[in-house]
Design a protein around this nucleic acid. Structure first.
Lengths: 229, 229
DNA sequence: CTTATTAGCGTATGTCATACGCATCGTTCG
DNA sequence: CGAACGATGCGTATGACATACGCTAATAAG
């Protein structure tokens, strides 16, 4: 599987001079699939539906994409095809902050990518471009690339985990605490139940949670990196 | 979707006195499905395959589980049906360390759960039990539950993100840097390429990465919580 | 113009989840 | 003790899905 995915993501597919020119392109297919996933959800991305949207026959898609699984991999990497938007920063702390927000922004805009990215560990050119860019920013402000990679990875991990509560929808926690109110259940989870009142306005809490956690994670990295200077 | 999932996970299903007694049980079905996912992968969990393993007809399963999607939700929560294994600890730092390792251990033992848990945000009784337990430990060593919840959430997020690189298999990074060696690609990702030699023995690095990152995250939390005492 | 070469795609196949309805088998009540 | 009841077990049918195969059409190179 691994080998195939690298081929898929990295190999050039030269346009041959000969033969019938293609109306469809891999890029159009992937872009349309992303549009469907964004608006209707990943489970609505079927070859049939996708072909209808593109005004083509179902099997035509297979001339440009090896299969459904590979399409999803391409969809994911395409989200990072454009350079990552990182504001100029003078400290590596700010670089990491901006990096975390950029990654988080991407996941928020494409919730389906959280699931896809989780189960899949092959870096494509898009993702490599993002990582390369942030590593460059970090070295520019004095952080060695090897330490930088660890820091980036840590922030990345956190962002991926942190976007999770947001995906389920805002009212899910309210519903949960409603269940907790049942006496039979409340007694089984005493510590959790004690949080119920505080969690009443937990929407705001979740809203800001990412910034809180991100800053804590970077605090920890800072402490370590300053010590290792 | 949310309402249904809460019903599914939390409602009691009383055994009626009347009627034919059931040979199959929801517990047996879920346990067998977990066994398949562990050994053959989540994509091998089909109703047909599962029924064969259980020696029953396919449609019999639907008497005990509403459908495939619901089965997967039940599989996930069943992983936390047994109490979380947290060694005794005297500092909340150690409690969080043990918590992180416990969560990580669960994901390592059941890699498919990473994908499932990512796309799904309804706490079942199992997960609630784990969270309640760690909150109890934290309050016992003096950390207020509301701060504790944020800390637990942060460690959780990190563990979920950190297990990701491990899932793809050990040699995937080696393969990646092999691609990076190509001159045409190397020039496009200069900072990443400069890491190639250091990443040669990156297996060891990844092996220990979780402990490194976990400690950094807890450092950051510590700094914040000490300040807020 | 001919031919090589590629794209477009209809049809067929196999897999999957699952709705429906019937047969079956303890339990419970008359 | 037997008959009605109510739940379970499950075969069959259906519809969605990915995709292998092979034919047709379009175009550029010679």
């Amino acid at each position: 599987m691994g080998q195939g995915e690298y081929e898929l993501l990295w190999s050039d597919r030269p346009r041959p001079g000969r033969g019938r020119p293609s109306g469809l392109t891999r890029e159009r297919i992937v872009a349309e699939a992303v549009a469907i996933a964004d608006t209707e959800g990943l489970h609505k991305v079927s070859m049939k539906h996708l072909a209808e949207r593109l005004g083509s026959g179902v099997m035509s898609l297979y001339r440009h994409v090896p299969g459904k699984d590979e399409l999803v991999v391409l969809m994911y990497d395409s989200l990072m095809a454009d350079p990552v938007d990182l504001p100029a920063a003078e400290s590596w702390r700010d670089v990491l902050l901006h990096w975390g927000r950029a990654v988080m922004g991407m996941f928020r805009a494409h919730p389906w990518a959280v699931t896809v990215g989780t189960g899949h560990r092959t870096m494509g050119p898009g993702e490599a471009g993002w990582v390369d860019e942030v590593l460059g920013r970090l070295t520019a402000v004095g952080l060695p690339a090897d330490l930088g990679l660890m820091a980036v990875l840590t922030v990345d991990c956190f962002a991926l985990g942190a976007v999770r509560p947001e995906i389920g929808g805002a009212d899910s926690s309210a519903q949960f605490f409603q269940f907790l109110a049942d006496p039979g259940i409340r007694d089984r989870f005493p510590h959790l139940s004690r949080l119920a009142p505080a969690a009443a306005d937990s929407d705001d809490l979740i809203e800001d949670y990412f910034e809180f956690g991100l800053n804590r994670v970077i605090d920890g990295l800072e402490q370590y990196l300053e010590g290792n200077r």
